[in-house]
Design a protein around this nucleic acid. Structure first.
Lengths: 220, 220
DNA sequence: TAGATTGTTAATCGATTAACAATC
DNA sequence: TAGATTGTTAATCGATTAACAATC
């Protein structure tokens, strides 16, 4: 019933599961026929999770299954794409043309998720003017102009930690609504700007913790 | 009481909070005196969370506070470092010398977490021999030798999706105990090998979802 | 001492799982 | 039909929060 009613901040774990479903089902569809279906058990097997949860999740995003058959793959994929916003195109500016910035700028995979980079900026004169695939690195002074002209909604920050807050301030002032922060520094922004902080150290913590503590421990 | 007794797979959310504490407290310590303390409320303020949870978490990793004073910053930082394994050094090999691989190889921040890259590999003859900061890119054939000689425990995969499974197979065969997978493809490994899949698309999903659905919605 | 903060138990909340009826 | 799978309610589990006594 609820549809997309009010939609408060969806829980991270839920979104993560949806992304998993999306990848699993869309991968499967590649070498399958048009009306292909997938069962909740098949999806659940992927991540060692309970199939009931898969059905709950799919029900939550409005996908109805067919008893004895499963779920239409195309329907699953479309529903997730719609909910996550992968069906729309988002223009974004990238600040920080270092190695990571360059890697992200030239990574082609974002288009699959509707992300389009419309400008790359750096305040290092040595970098300004360089070409990164289809873009020329511009000076930060041109940021506001580009954000307004191209109506960019998102900013990707790939600057050093020390430059993160200033970069955040500038993109906020320029008018973006969300920030994808790859700098390993927490930035503060007005409430209205959504920040996703991609901290590499969380992943590393999990690995490091595992390596340290798995030595002689028997597997459950 | 439990100490570090059996220590099963710690919950992701818990580890993530610990990493937050670690960064917040160690940042604060930089411009503070030696015996500096921090209260659970101060830590909690950082992420808009309940201070009780902070105290629970710290108690769980064996840090005892001082009523009326708070927690000794150094003690907090040390306990987290110890639990997460940041106090130890882990040797790792990096497979895939593309842009992302290069960015990671030359990123100096990992040492803070005890990660040391001891070799970079690629099967593209055009890349083999190139220098990435202190390393020369080696052919994949040399992988096993390096892993054994340097006793590398971790492999970082920054290869294209299509090459991910093969790369995983090779590093597993060479003897690593964990994989940090940046390829946007799920890889399967023996149970004994721990895999952390860093899927960029989860972060993107959260942002994309926000951008799509936050238009006219009033903030809670 | 009075007051601030910890530590811990109990209460709540939400997410996951189990059970099973509904359905094609 | 018989059987497989969905959909949903109820039960469980675990994580978070509230309350408050213990403590320096």
């Amino acid at each position: 019933m609820s549809k997309t009613a009010d939609m408060p901040a969806l829980k991270h774990a839920f979104l993560e599961r949806l992304v998993h479903y999306y990848h699993f089902v869309s991968d499967r569809m590649r070498d399958a026929e048009d009306g292909a279906t997938v069962t909740s058990t098949e999806i659940a097997g992927l991540i060692h999770m309970d199939d009931t949860l898969v059905r709950k999740d799919l029900a939550a995003i409005g996908v109805r299954g067919l008893p004895r058959v499963g779920f239409r793959s195309a329907e699953v994929v479309d529903a997730v794409r719609l909910l996550l916003g992968f069906d729309q195109s988002y223009r974004s500016v990238l600040v920080g043309a270092g190695r990571l910035g360059g890697a992200m700028a030239s990574y082609g995979g974002f288009t699959r998720y509707g992300l389009e980079i419309v400008g790359i900026f750096d305040n290092d004169p040595d970098k300004v003017g360089a070409f990164i695939t289809p873009h020329r690195v511009r000076p930060l002074e041109e940021l506001t102009e580009v954000v307004r002209q191209r109506q960019a909604e998102l900013a990707i920050l790939t600057v050093p930690p020390s430059a993160a807050q200033e970069a955040a301030d500038r993109v906020v002032e320029a008018g973006v609504r969300a920030i994808w922060n790859f700098a390993s520094a927490i930035v503060t922004t007005p409430e209205s700007v959504f920040v996703r902080h991609e901290h590499i150290s969380v992943g590393l913590a999990e690995l490091s913790h595992h390596l340290k503590h798995s030595g002689s421990v028997a597997e459950g």
